[in-house]
Amino acid sequence: MSDEPHVMSTTQRLVYMAEQIARNFAALGEDRTVTALAEHLTSYWDPHMKDQIVAIARDHPDSLSPPVAAAVARLAQGRTPAGPNPAQFNAVDEVGHCDAG
């Protein structure tokens, strides 16, 4: 790590976070690391973050270590890109909906 001030981009941070989690699971051995990491990302990451890490894995596969890449691959199975969910938003009653306007 250099001594320069570091400001991470969101992408860098997500990669950093995933790698950091993986390093903390590393003592479990690679298989269990992949499982644990995938579970962790599923449980604690917001959908957009998940989408982002999946996109990173797709676009920049070299930026992820093998266990992280494997875990993200597992995460990617069965995920559809998330976005605004108007139906859910509109589930709030009319007054709220009007207010938002």
Binding site: D46, P84, N85, G96, D99, A100, G101
Partner: peptide, 19 residues
Amino acid sequence: IAHTASEFRRIQAKYGTRS
């Protein structure tokens, strides 16, 4: 209060539920 509510709704309408 009205301003608070309307701002949040405005932002969500523009940037999405998770914004």
